[in-house]
Design a protein around this nucleic acid. Structure first.
Lengths: 121, 121
DNA sequence: CAAACATATGAACAGTTGTTCAACTGTTAC
DNA sequence: GTAACAGTTGAACAACTGTTCATATGTTTG
């Protein structure tokens, strides 16, 4: 269960502080939830994707305008949008030769707003 | 300002939807805030770091116990803790040969809790 | 039909990331 | 002192990530 049988590192097989460790164990979510959580944060952990989310927070936008706003090529934006779509962060609507993207989840905006509070320290 | 002068891609120099683009521009934070935001999310975007944050949400813990809880070597945990310390996510307290780490910011827990809501869909 | 446009996509590439391994520092106990 | 322990650190490496470039798809206009 505990890796590192190497030269340095801990040898003791049990926890130093059993009570705290038990509490901590309970605080760690199930693997599936954990994966989803970290993936959601990872999506917002990229500056380009974060900008895309912010740009879409007001209205839907086409890929070209999105590219202009975030300062990326349309190709790069399109690649990111595909990932974000797969992660249920955005949806799209087709109209002629254009594709309009919009946020798929209102929670995302709350998440960014709360994150901003942390940054403001 | 808009990259991609290549073969494919948009040629139009202006925004298709000027109103929406203006609104979107306002919604995108200043570069410094943006960087801080994405870095904060990136910290939580790694499953190991996320587990460490969750484990520390109840009590302080020493490196060895932390390693046991998240299923990593102490070396790996120590490396992560160094990064998290630099990002002001955790602080530490030394006691003899042990080092006890704790969360440095109560906002982080709120952020994770809100993220969990998104995952629950 | 062809040309112009908006977007999508695949391969390739550079840069980053997280872990491991080995060695090292500092502390406690004998 | 020395041995055991707890933690830190640097180098190395594989895996992943985001962008670019070229090309492809589908739509509208003449």
């Amino acid at each position: 269960m505990r890796p590192n049988g190497g030269i340095g590192g801990r040898v003791t097989p049990e926890f130093v502080d059993r009570r705290h460790a038990e509490d901590a164990r309970k605080a760690i979510h199930a693997p599936a939830v954990l994966r989803g959580l970290s993936q959601t944060f990872k999506m917002l952990g990229d500056e380009s994707r974060l900008k895309i989310c912010l740009a879409l927070s007001r209205h839907e936008l086409c890929v070209g305008d999105l590219a202009g706003l975030v300062g990326l090529s349309e190709s790069a934006v399109s690649h990111q949008l595909r990932i974000m779509k797969a992660m249920r962060l955005v949806t799209y609507r087709k109209e002629g030769k254009m594709t309009f993207y919009m946020l798929d989840d209102e929670h995302i905006e709350d998440l960014i707003r709360l994150g901003a509070k942390h940054v403001a320290e």
